[in-house]
Amino acid sequence: MSGTDEIERLIELMSRLPGLGPRSARRAVLHLIRKRALLLKPLAQSMQVVADTARECLNCGNVGTSDICALCEDEGRANGLLCVVEDVADLWAMERANVFKGRYHVLGGTLSALDGIGPDDLRIPQLKQRITAEAVSEVVLALNATIDGQTTAHYIADQLEGTVTLTSLAQGVPIGGELDYLDDGTITAALNARKPL
């Protein structure tokens, strides 16, 4: 394989990343090559370390470099609150907001009859075990406001009914949002969840 073929292979691999198409990947690879010592070599080393050490937390499903992630090991978070999310990206988004101080549970997807994903394909049985084992008093269902997300939330609510307090994230108009740009479902959810001033 010639040097050009190897560069083309890198471009092709990078174009598979979310948010990068072939043109963006080509620009990124050219930038990395130009900044070889500053970016490319450290990036390659870091990617190798992550490839060798990254694993899923055995407890919550988060991604880290140890069997139990730092969020699960943090005793300050053992406060009876458990936030259920669809995937690790959602967990990281919640953490970025820096407002939730409980623990998390990553389902690994949502129920989907069309895709053949049932309750046993997700981490729902582990969720039930954790609620008992960790003396969870409230489960926050922070699932996406999609049909599959809402179906999953209703299924979990049915499974946990009477065992724990269930809450969900509020839905509606985002801060800074303009009504003219919102879809009908968002406006409907916002109107139905209105509160007194």
Rank of each mutant, 00 (worst) to 15 (best):
E8W: 02
D115L: 10
E73I: 08
A142H: 00
D180V: 10
M47I: 13
L82S: 02
P125S: 08
V136A: 04
A70R: 14
V84K: 00
Y155I: 03
E6G: 05
I33N: 11
I117A: 02
L127A: 01
C60M: 07
L40E: 07
M14L: 15
I156G: 00
G21A: 08
P119H: 04
D87F: 05
G172H: 01
L38Y: 09
T167W: 05
K101V: 05
E134H: 14
L13C: 08
L160I: 03
R36W: 06
A135M: 14
R130I: 06
T167D: 03
G61I: 01
A145W: 00
G149Q: 03
V173A: 06
S66T: 15
K41I: 14
T163S: 14
I175F: 13
D5P: 01
M47K: 08
A44Y: 09
S2A: 08
V139L: 05
D183C: 09
L191W: 07
N62S: 11
Q48K: 12
S24G: 12
R9G: 06
G149H: 02
T165R: 12
A70V: 11
F100S: 02
P22H: 07
G118L: 07
E178H: 13
T4W: 04
E56M: 08
S137W: 02
A25Q: 01
L40G: 06
L32G: 06
Q129I: 11
A142W: 00
L43K: 10
A93L: 09
V139S: 00
V173H: 02
I175P: 03
T132F: 12
D115V: 04
V106Y: 00
L38A: 15
A78Y: 05
L107G: 00
A189T: 01
G76K: 05
K35N: 15
G177D: 04
N62L: 03
R23T: 13
D52F: 11
N98E: 13
N98S: 11
A142I: 03
G177N: 09
G80E: 04
L107R: 02
D74G: 12
R34Y: 15
T65G: 07
D121A: 11
E134I: 11
L179T: 05
R103W: 02
K128L: 07
T188G: 02
E75P: 04
L43P: 06
D74A: 14
E178G: 10
C69Q: 01
I7R: 01
V84R: 00
N192W: 11
I117D: 05
G19P: 04
S46W: 10
E6K: 14
E138N: 09
G109K: 10
L38V: 15
D158N: 14
M1S: 15
V139Q: 00
E8K: 08
P119R: 03
K195D: 15
I68T: 15
